[in-house]
Nucleic acid binder design. Structure first.
Length: 154
DNA sequence: GCCAACGTTGGC
DNA sequence: GCCAACGTTGGC
């Protein structure tokens, strides 16, 4: 069963353009239990939208796919990593997946536009949302995908 | 830069 | 186990 997700990143840290260059990256440094539990549910070929947060125009800027099952996030136990967690209980305290670049949109789907869609309840559009990994229902995915395709003549 | 919302921490 | 204080996220 293919599932659909949104991953957030601050573009100053890592952007869709960075991913378009390196093509494959490990999505690591997630240090929130709810987000970690979502990573655990991921499967190869899951579809992920790349969301730019904390920037001038927040929104969905591209697409990627999950290319590995979840695995222990090596940065949690790496003293030299900025994501080092000295309290991490064990190797599986935190999880990563690898993702592969798929698309970078000429016209991003802005948060403003997303709020016009009838997504229903989602951490994406609720106030004060800080969740960096957000699951989408099939219906939410369809709405978003259709809007992006319209915007980009896909 | 402001500040609301939320997760985490730590004293009790 | 409660909850106030604190730190961080992220839209505006």
């Amino acid at each position: 069963m293919t599932r659909y997700w949104i991953f957030k990143s601050e573009p100053y840290e890592f952007s869709i353009s960075n991913l378009a260059e390196c093509l494959i990256t490990r999505w690591d440094g997630i240090r929130n239990y709810q987000a970690r539990n979502f990573i655990r549910e991921m499967n190869v070929d899951d579809v992920v939208y790349f969301y730019h947060s904390n920037c001038k125009v927040p929104g969905i800027y591209g697409k990627m796919t999950v290319i590995t099952p979840s695995y222990s996030d090596p940065t949690a136990n790496d003293k030299d990593s900025k994501y080092f967690d000295k309290k991490a209980a064990n190797l599986n305290s935190w999880l990563s997946v690898d993702v592969m670049y798929k698309d970078k949109y000429k016209e991003p789907l802005t948060l403003h536009s997303i709020k016009q869609l009838a997504l229903g309840d989602s951490p994406l559009t609720s106030k004060g949302n800080r969740l960096s990994i957000i699951p989408l229902t099939d219906e939410q995915y369809e709405l978003i995908e259709r809007e992006i395709n319209t915007l980009n003549d896909l």
